[in-house]
């Protein structure tokens, strides 16, 4: 069942009389319990899209159906019950400066008529899970970026929302804390059936936790679908935009180009994710195969392999044709 569906969403910002079309005809849907990653280059409109989802910014037109209700029809007052069901972690954290960590995390509970003891129990539990027990009395200005981010995360999930919106939730965290936070987020999403929409630059985050990906390119949704399809669908150029390691390797590879040689990018997915497919295909053919780049990664839903091969020899075209049938995706670079 869909928890959110977005239909033909358009958003413009007006700046000194100029209209900037930021989101163009965006449509996608997210099922309950799913994790959707929103990716795209800086300025693509990721934050803007996230902000429309709880109506912090009203779109010009289009629908946002949240739990069967079109929330674009609501106003600042009638949207309040909806907002209480949607947790948000902002790109710049936006903690309350004059409240300590405890009161920042407890804030959404303090808006309701909840017993003080109950609030204390819940804040302490979540502070423990997220490693902030010792910092409960500190104020935001006394926290590191990563600590502030964790307070933001704790504040967004303490009310047991149905959906959380995360804007670059791991941008200020080191790899170890990132892992802890992602595990926590995954754990909550599984245990409570929490749905998550997260903006991220970090492809590792996408690989580890996202079921689906929405790829924004200058305000249009250039891809929406399963995570492995996303990685397979990227052109080689796009992969290099997202992954540094790949970019350096790819630049080295391009220097080797010549007429006799062909370069192909091959993607494996799921059960047949192993290199032997290549050697089986190459067997008995008069060709040379060289692996220039290769990586097999664990996506949330299974292994995903990506290789760049250098091929030379008379039967190159034949080889490519045969291989194409056996792998998930193949592109001649």
């Amino acid at each position: 069942m869909n928890i959110v569906s977005v239909e033909n969403l358009n958003l413009t910002y007006e700046e000194k009389g100029n209209k900037n079309h930021i989101l163009k005809d965006i449509s996608f849907e997210v099922e309950k319990g799913e994790i959707l990653g929103i990716v795209g280059l800086s300025g693509a409109g990721k934050t803007s899209l996230l902000r429309t989802l709880n109506l912090l910014h009203k779109p010009d037109n289009g629908k946002i159906i949240f739990e069967q209700e079109d929330i674009t029809k609501l106003n600042e007052k009638t949207v309040i019950p909806i907002r209480k069901k949607i947790g948000v972690v902002f790109q710049h954290f936006n903690l309350f400066r004059n409240k300590n960590v405890y009161n920042n995390i407890a804030f959404p509970l303090l808006l309701e008529k909840i017993d003080k003891e109950e609030i204390k129990k819940r804040v302490e539990k979540i502070a423990d899970e997220i490693g902030l027990t010792e910092r409960l009395n500190a104020y935001p200005s006394q926290l590191s970026g990563g600590e502030q981010q964790r307070v933001g995360i704790a504040r967004s999930i303490i009310t047991n929302p149905d959906l959380i919106l995360l804007d670059e939730p791991t941008s200020a965290l080191d790899p170890m804390i990132t892992k802890i936070i992602l595990d926590l987020v995954l754990d909550i999403s599984i245990k409570r059936g929490l749905t998550i929409i997260t903006v991220t630059h970090d492809m590792d985050v996408v690989k580890r936790i996202c079921d689906k990906v929405a790829y924004l390119k200058k305000g249009t949704l250039s891809f929406f679908g399963e995570t492995h399809e996303f990685f397979a669908s990227l052109t080689t150029k796009e992969v290099s935009e997202f992954e540094n390691e790949f970019l350096t390797d790819f630049e080295k590879i391009k220097k080797r180009e010549s007429d006799e040689k062909k370069f192909i990018r091959v993607v494996f997915w799921g059960a047949n994710t192993h290199e032997s497919v290549i050697w089986d295909t190459a067997k008995d053919m008069d060709i040379n195969v060289n692996i220039l780049y290769g990586k097999i990664e664990e996506l949330k839903k299974g292994p995903f392999g990506s290789l760049i091969l250098e091929i030379s020899g008379k039967q190159s075209m034949n080889f490519i044709k045969n291989l194409k049938e056996k792998v998930y995706y193949l592109e001649v670079i």
């Binding site: 902000r51 709880n54 912090l56 600042e76 007052k77 309040i80 019950p81 907002r83 209480k84 949607i86 948000v88 902002f90 710049h92 954290f93 936006n94 903690l95 309350f96 400066r97 804030f107 959404p108 303090l110 808006l111 504040r155």
Partner: peptide
């Protein structure tokens, strides 16, 4: 700061809660 206003709005504060809290 507008970020703090965003925080308060997204947490579902009423007008009165926004002013007092």
């Amino acid at each position: 700061p507008s970020g703090i206003i965003d925080s308060a709005r997204s947490l579902g504060t009423t007008n009165w809660q926004f002013i007092s809290k």
